[in-house]
Write a protein that binds this DNA or RNA. Structure first.
Lengths: 332, 332
DNA sequence: CCCGGCCCTGGAAACGTTTCCGGGATGTCC
DNA sequence: GGACATCCCGGAAACGTTTCCAGGGCCGGG
């Protein structure tokens, strides 16, 4: 351990050839089979492993890609990671994780330094998009794919969910199932998803001819506990026959709140969540949930990034993954 | 985008000083305030960002650490990542993720190439430990911390859970609550945790004076669906008044199987899981679970690694994190 | 048999930093 | 006021690769 590693020079000496020949032999740029054999023998003997750092310096790429998101603990991001990782690994890239903790400062610094550096590409999932994000995005030295909403005038590849339509689908589904007092527990209103889901909720109400009642709306922070608290709030404050939670954790919290208040699901109150994480299928009762296609978005983003890193310079793409509703017992 | 980045030479030219001075100014190795100011002005003007690759080549460290585990989707590993990431980030390291898919080949290649390369340290969570693992561990060029069981003669820092004792605690708890026919749904027996938990289960039975009945034991693969299936199997096969699941997913599957079979929890059958993931608290009924301290293990491993990377060369440590049982409604 | 072209090899430069070293200027003390 | 120590800056080497380039051997054709 901590032994100095052999360099290409030592391999060359042992094999009795020049370092250029070693390099060529190892990279398959020679046709002399005997040369290759000698070099490989020397490599074997010394336990030589090329320095990726030196290679990177020379070749100007690092075989690394970063994925930056708010919090790896969030199931939706996790789903993305699970899709992104194999795609990139099969293409020979390593995945670097960057939890920003939703800090704008941190996200921007990822963009303008991280992306100019030890990474060949970046997939970014910003919770909020500020002017500084946009400015930084214009300056990056490597391809960036943004997952999430982005202003129209930013020409960067962009894979988005349509959580607005998704939220509307949830409301319409609940209405169709007979609900008329549909509560909504949102995440923070100043985040991109929080705002979009709220808009979708209102659009859904409008489409169903229901009035918007502020008593039916509460804001939490996308977590289980705060979801439970917010749900209790609404449920004790006013009359409710359905709850739409802005993500599955909030909806799970709602299920617990309902149980504590002695209400039954779905007979008494129907519940729908969002993101369709594994939680939804394993909850009790199994939770209806609007999938925003996290897995698809991850996979698409990874493939897009791969194409860009391979030199594809067609105009920026904008892919929107359509939402889909999975109906389970909680709203049946 | 894709514009060539300025180098230190250009900064030097703009600032009218030598590259050595630029380097010193940027790294705080100079006391001339005016020099620093001039350099920073030039840096600002050019938008210069040092090449981390070149720095790494020179300084021989990369400010990167890898975490290799079977599958990032597993909640226990996720918990570790959440702890490891901030510790390392605060110390200036980036975290590289490596999902091995439990492939021995892949794990060993991580060990003997990855660790000799673009990384200053490695945290490894092997599901199985083979001779090749051990051999590779002896050869690594950078500090490695292993989370999980390791043969005694391998002198590598090691943070372990005691899942054997944990499993035994679960059984004793169920016995104390009145259960006498305690079923066990394990993961694959040929994995380190699968084996340890099985051993703990048997030890628990022995401690309670209960016989080992093969009818009460079934093997799944640590997933929800296979856990549900295995639970159904056992529950229809024989008489059962408690189930211990080798992880929370299996226990969740068991809860669903019980519900489908019309048995109530905990009155009819008590259930205990393992890992105490967030799932446990949000399930219905809330799931009793043995915590193996994933979060603690992650944090400890990260700190240990940090110490090693800072040159601490005291003899290898072996830390065992004690299990703890959180009793919730499912076994009350 | 000689010459030209081709292929293979080795030498050397380059990638962008950090750091060692030497020289010149400055300050201080006698 | 001179000598010596001190400090600061610039030049250059080095980190470990890849790749360009030139030279030499070999083969084939004239």
């Amino acid at each position: 351990m901590q032994r100095r590693r052999p360099t290409i020079h030592e391999v060359a000496k042992v094999a009795g050839v020049s370092i250029s020949s070693v390099s060529r032999a190892l990279n398959g740029n020679t046709s002399n089979a005997e040369m290759v054999a000698r070099v490989e023998a020397a490599v074997q003997q010394l336990g030589y492993v090329p320095s990726q750092v030196a290679q990177s310096l020379k070749t100007r790429h690092t075989a690394q890609v970063a994925f930056a998101m708010e919090d790896i603990g969030n199931a939706a991001y996790l789903e993305m990671v699970r899709q992104i990782q194999p795609v990139l690994r099969d293409a020979g890239y390593r995945l670097l994780l960057h939890s920003t903790g939703a800090d704008v400062e941190d996200e921007v610094s990822v963009l303008d330094s991280l992306s100019q550096n030890y990474v060949d590409g970046l997939i970014l999932c910003p919770l909020r998009v500020t002017g500084r994000h946009v400015a930084a995005l214009r300056e990056t030295a490597v391809p960036v794919i943004v997952i999430g909403l982005l202003p129209d005038d930013v020409s960067v590849d962009n894979v988005r969910a349509d959580s607005r339509v998704g939220a509307r689908m949830a409301v319409e589904h609940l209405y169709a199932a007979g609900a008329r007092r549909i509560a909504f527990i949102d995440g923070p209103i100043d985040t991109v998803p929080g705002e979009a889901r709220y808009a979708g909720y209102r659009a859904g109400l409008a489409a169903c001819g229901l009035p918007l009642d502020d008593d039916l709306v509460e804001f939490a922070d996308f977590q289980f506990e705060s979801g439970r608290r917010a749900a209790r709030e609404v449920l004790t404050r006013t009359d409710v026959d359905a709850v739409f939670g802005a993500n599955d954790l909030i909806a799970m919290g709602t299920l617990h709140a309902l149980r504590e208040l002695g209400r039954t699901v779905p007979d008494d109150v129907r519940v729908v969540g969002m993101d369709d994480t594994t939680l939804a299928a394993t909850s009790f009762p199994p939770l209806s949930s609007v999938s925003l296609g996290s897995a698809d978005r991850g996979r698409i983003a990874a493939k897009l990034l791969l194409a860009r890193m391979n030199g594809d310079d067609s105009p920026p793409e904008r892919v929107t993954v359509p939402p889909s509703l999975t109906i389970r017992e909680s709203s049946r």
